[in-house]
Design a protein around this nucleic acid. Sequence first.
DNA 1: CCGTTTAATAAAAGCCTGTTTATATATTAG
DNA 2: CTAATATATAAACAGGCTTTTATTAAACGG
Lengths: 103, 103
Amino acid sequence: MLKTQRQPPDAELREMARYFYALKDILRLRILVTLGDREMTVTELAQELRISQPLVSFHLRPLRVLGLVQVRRVGREVFYSVNVAEIQRRQDEFMNLLTRAKI
Amino acid sequence: MLKTQRQPPDAELREMARYFYALKDILRLRILVTLGDREMTVTELAQELRISQPLVSFHLRPLRVLGLVQVRRVGREVFYSVNVAEIQRRQDEFMNLLTRAKI
DNA sequence: CCGTTTAATAAAAGCCTGTTTATATATTAG
DNA sequence: CTAATATATAAACAGGCTTTTATTAAACGG
């Protein structure tokens, strides 16, 4: 019998699709790269990227929900920064899925 | 003066967004994982995943265009397999973008 | 309190995408 | 050459998403 790879459960693939979905947009990548420089508030991000504040909030949401960015509230300002560790973790998880040892 | 990160050119981010866009779908991830097991034809993939042949072809296209899967034609059958090296390369490229050394 | 600032959410509009169904293209068998 | 098989592409439909505009919520300053 041929060795066959265990198929990952649907939930795992769905979660991974959500991760890639959160990164599929060039605006989101710009946000991440900009935040890779330094922690910034929503308004600062909007100015730097020349887009409206609601649009920044709209794109920050999935990044925040998935834990790809970290949030720190100070007064009425909200500082965002990249969560490199969490991103690295998900990247590793993906590569493991593709190269998983055969059973 | 504060150290500031060089902003990657738009083309680079657009290409990276295309990469994530190609992976944002659970069906595409299922295709990749299934192909991670062994080389398969389009028809085999359709049967294994219980979806129509045109839908498989539709999802294979962006993966093929970006070089995430490899193609080998034999007669009228087309065998697809995962290009792990290319995927790894893009993953590394992304992490470099996020953690690029400050200037 | 009251006005101002910061960020998130809601509503509306226009656009794009995934899926199905149908068709075209290429290769093989007879 | 004709029929059959394998794959890719086209057309059409349905549903969802991004963006803008407007509003709400929360926190601060006077």
